[in-house]
Write a protein that binds this DNA or RNA. Sequence first.
DNA 1: GAGTGTTACTTGCTTTTTGCAAGTAACAGG
DNA 2: CCTGTTACTTGCAAAAAGCAAGTAACACTC
Lengths: 160, 160
Amino acid sequence: MRDELKSNLRSLCPVSISLEIFGDRWSLLIVRDLMVRGYRTFGEFQRSGEGIATNVLADRLRRLEAAGLISAEPDEADRRRMNYRLTPKGIDLAPVLLDLLIWGARHEETAAPAAVIDEMERHRDEVLADVRRRWEARDPTPLLPPFDGKPARRKKKARA
Amino acid sequence: MRDELKSNLRSLCPVSISLEIFGDRWSLLIVRDLMVRGYRTFGEFQRSGEGIATNVLADRLRRLEAAGLISAEPDEADRRRMNYRLTPKGIDLAPVLLDLLIWGARHEETAAPAAVIDEMERHRDEVLADVRRRWEARDPTPLLPPFDGKPARRKKKARA
DNA sequence: GAGTGTTACTTGCTTTTTGCAAGTAACAGG
DNA sequence: CCTGTTACTTGCAAAAAGCAAGTAACACTC
């Protein structure tokens, strides 16, 4: 972490510091896309279902790179395209993501089938090892089908 | 989760839904205080080191309660005081918190001694079982010493 | 039981962050 | 060259966060 950030630290508690880096609604979704969906480009993140604004996406990519969680390099074949990738520090977030996935699936109504979650919970270590293997191999095949099924269209407020 | 929130969901991905509930800089710090420090009151959260503003704290407590992660009831002995407590849904966040702790301690400069973290990582299941046992027993003894040591005093920007 | 201190908030205001719509520079493909 | 893509930026409005002060309800002391 750079000095600029360091000087603004709230405390030295690891949880607090972690949250200062990716404690927002979007950062971990980008990490999720990189980790389990095999996404790598700006456009893919943008179209990944939750509807992040392009300026916020650009900002998050900058921050994640500054914090050393992702790396960015221009595509060899197509020079317009940037390829983002998790760093070792970034892939180490796999346990956090997995726990988040399990918690959400257990306690909220989601599109994740209970059977799949049970399976992942039972074989936690294998799942994590698999995630890491895929990352090392640069395997872009999605690990999980996107649990999307975006609901109709959210509105600010239901009209009277 | 209540209908109001439900209607604003970005997607049905469990990770996304989890982040909508506690994906911000403060919510999980409150959970941490409840889970490992044995804090229960507004004042304790407020003084817990990171300097949350009172209006934001009040808001987060409301949201966490609305989401079913914590419960609130007035203290028997002192009727001014509210006692907050994790619900079963809230204590189920223990794995997330633990992974966050481990990640932060591994990858950032924190006040957590490496030896303690190694120990926790090695005995992950025991630590989680212990957390749950303490929660069930309503044991308010801190599980960990606050990894605080708040750095001097953060400034907006270093002056010229 | 009057006075003082606590506790858990709220209120009002400023600053920062987010969200949204549009625009643009660099490149690719035909 | 012309058109479409990709990865952004810009400008502005709305929402959220931060800050300082205030307050209602209770507790504690004398």
